[in-house]
Computed example of a mutant assay.
Amino acid sequence: MSFQASYQVILLLVLNFEGLTIIRLKDDHDSEHAYKVKNTLIFNAFVMCQLFNEFNVRNPEEISCFKGVTKNYLFMGVIGFTLILQVIIIEFLGKFTSTVRLDWQLWLVSIGIGIVSWPLANVGKLILVPETPVTSYFTKPFRRNKASRNS
């Protein structure tokens, strides 16, 4: 599992189980609204992680995820369209998507969570990958050789 996937799974689990406490809504009088805010934040943070990770996967071999990004108009269009669509979903399509409007602080939290994927990807790129897959060491003892299968 990659650093990015591990980060997202851990982050989303923490937000799911401790989100009300983290965003200080645990003692909110309207618990239904508090849960909707928490779930909207989880959804928004997930989308922001995906959005920022798109920069990382453009060119996986490069350390800088921004190299040549402004020359790729299609990529910039997809990023812009995704961001605009996310704002529309969160801010205006609440009944349809079961979301609630987020205040600017929670938008900043969502963007901050997404931005963490940039340095995290750089750390992942610095880890050397062995030529022989690690899984081959675990499956070798269970493989039968061809000679024993044919007899």
Rank of each mutant, 00 (worst) to 15 (best):
I84H: 12
V37F: 00
I22A: 12
E18A: 14
V116W: 08
V69W: 11
I88E: 15
E18K: 11
G19A: 09
H29Q: 15
G114Q: 06
S148L: 11
V123Y: 08
Q8M: 09
N44F: 04
I88D: 11
L11A: 07
T139S: 07
K95A: 06
F17I: 09
V47H: 09
L120F: 05
T139V: 03
C65M: 10
S117H: 01
K38S: 08
F3E: 02
N56H: 02
N39R: 12
I113A: 01
F3L: 09
L20S: 07
P133L: 04
T97G: 02
G124R: 03
V37A: 01
T132I: 14
S148A: 09
W118C: 03
V69A: 13
L11K: 06
A45M: 02
L25S: 05
V87N: 14
I23S: 02
D27M: 13
F17H: 10
K140W: 00
P60F: 09
F3Q: 05
R58L: 05
E18I: 09
G124N: 06
V78A: 13
L102H: 01
A121P: 01
S64V: 13
S110Y: 00
G112Y: 03
W107E: 00
P141N: 03
S2I: 14
E91Q: 14
L83R: 11
D27L: 14
M76C: 14
N72G: 14
G124M: 06
I90P: 00
L13N: 05
F142M: 07
F55H: 06
N53P: 02
K38N: 11
N145Q: 05
N16L: 10
P133Q: 06
I111V: 12
L106A: 01
A121L: 04
L106Y: 03
N59Y: 13
R101E: 03
T132R: 12
V47L: 10
G68H: 10
V129K: 02
T135M: 12
A34Y: 04
R149W: 09
G94C: 10
K71G: 11
W104F: 15
Q105W: 00
I89V: 10
C65V: 03
F138N: 11
K67C: 06
E62V: 07
E91G: 05
Y35M: 10
R143W: 02
I89H: 04
T99Q: 05
N145K: 04
N53Y: 08
K140G: 00
F81H: 07
L126V: 08
S98G: 04
T97V: 07
F142T: 07
W104E: 14
R58C: 01
K125L: 07
L13P: 01
S151C: 09
T70S: 13
F66P: 01
K71R: 12
F55N: 02
A5S: 02
K95L: 07
N150L: 02
V100W: 08
F81Q: 10
V9M: 12
S136W: 10
V129F: 05
W104T: 15
S31C: 03
S117C: 04
V109E: 15
F142E: 07
R143M: 08
T135F: 10
L41A: 05
I115L: 08
S110H: 05
D103C: 08
L83F: 06
I113K: 00
L12Y: 00
L85Y: 10
I113F: 02
F96W: 14
S136Y: 08
S148H: 11
Q86L: 13
L102K: 02
D27R: 15
N122M: 14
R149Q: 05
Q86M: 15
S136C: 08
L83P: 00
